[in-house]
């Protein structure tokens, strides 16, 4: 029996304590969105803003992204950037992004205050939009047993969780954050496993069929780069895929350049993707981006017994090797 886990009052109390601290400059959490059942990120700098914080199963965003993806405009001469801590709310999956960011030295453990959210699954906004095409909201989503309860525009409806839960949650092995300073609710026991069924089917097919599948997907891509921009791991100041010199790919939107883009993006996440699924969530063209990430994820786990974002002390996968690494394809 899974229930709504987070006590909003407790969340606000802790948030208030945290943002009141001298050494904290920002708290990143969730607040209600403006439309439908959406939640949106909240950037809390003052105690007065704490009241809007909330956590519901509609809090799909991985807030870890905002720890690394921000602009750095030039600062007035003689001043340096504010190095006070940032507090961030993370679900189990999101917490792995923090660990991976720490593996990649994006910041130190002491630079962040992690408010961990044990999570029993979030909704898939796309599925919800389909289910409630008319909902204007802003609405509420609650977890009650095996159902989600949606209330908006004066109406309340109960939907079996399985129908609207995000795919990634059905194979979540880390429902409780792997790293945190404060846990906002009791730990959630692991309730699912990952068997890679979603990619196994395609893996078995022939080259022509595989390519036919991907050709259709890639040709849809409009190169909005949303998948890259939302990714908590993609935070290079200058993405190589944008460069003109050297130019790895042209800007034109066609099957060749789109494919090159998707190969490059996925390869750059090999051994780094922590399976939060944000890339696919934001894709306006419904490209199954996670299937590519998961192919790498599966290979990395199988070949190197490596799982990114589970240990801040781990070395980056492609910066290490074992003398006995597999090499069956090498002549």
């Amino acid at each position: 029996m899974v229930e709504q886990l987070i006590d909003t009052d407790k969340l606000k109390k802790i948030a208030e304590e945290v943002i009141s601290r001298e050494d904290v400059r920002l708290l990143i959490g969730y607040r209600k969105g403006t439309f439908g059942f959406r939640m949106r990120p909240a950037f809390v700098e003052e105690v007065s803003e704490v009241g809007e914080l909330e956590f519901t199963p509609a809090c799909v965003n991985n807030l870890a992204t905002y720890l690394t993806n921000y602009e750095r405009p030039p600062l007035p001469r003689g001043t340096t950037n504010d190095t006070r801590k940032v507090a961030v709310m993370v679900k189990g999956c999101d917490s792995r992004a923090l660990l991976q960011q720490m593996v990649e030295l994006a910041y130190k453990r002491d630079d962040v205050i992690i408010l961990g959210i044990p999570c029993n699954g979030v909704i898939d906004p796309a599925k919800v939009d389909k289910r409630f095409p008319e909902a204007k909201g802003p609405g509420d989503v609650k977890r009650e047993g095996d159902n989600f309860t949606f209330s908006a525009d004066g109406k309340t409806e109960t939907v079996p969780a399985a129908e609207v839960i995000a795919d990634k949650c059905t194979r979540c092995r880390y429902p409780t954050p792997l790293v945190y300073d404060e846990l906002l609710a009791p730990e959630v026991e692991r309730f699912a496993d990952d068997t890679y069924e979603d990619i196994a089917g395609l893996e078995k097919r022939g080259s022509d069929e595989k390519w036919a599948y991907w050709e259709e997907k890639f040709s849809r891509c409009v190169r909005c780069y949303g998948c890259r921009n939302v990714c908590p791991m993609c935070y290079c100041d200058e993405c190589v895929l944008d460069r003109l010199s050297p130019q790895w790919m042209r800007r034109s939107v066609d099957i060749s350049e789109n494919t090159a883009y998707h190969i490059s993006r996925a390869y750059h996440l090999a051994g780094r993707c922590i399976q939060c699924g944000e890339c696919q969530r934001v894709c306006p063209m419904d490209i199954p981006i996670m299937e590519m990430n998961r192919k790498f994820y599966k290979d990395v786990a199988e070949f190197y017994e490596y799982e990114p974002g589970t240990d801040a002390e781990e070395k980056p996968l492609l910066s290490i090797f074992s003398v006995d690494d597999k090499e069956d394809f090498i002549l």
Binding site: L105, A106, E238, K315, P316, S319, I320
Partner: peptide, 21 residues
């Protein structure tokens, strides 16, 4: 340096410890 994100991958990779952050 303007494009470097300081992840330290190269530091780990270098067999000669020639790179530092």
């Amino acid at each position: 340096e303007a494009a470097c994100r300081g992840c330290g991958f190269c530091v780990e990779i270098c067999p000669f410890s020639a790179i530092e952050l």
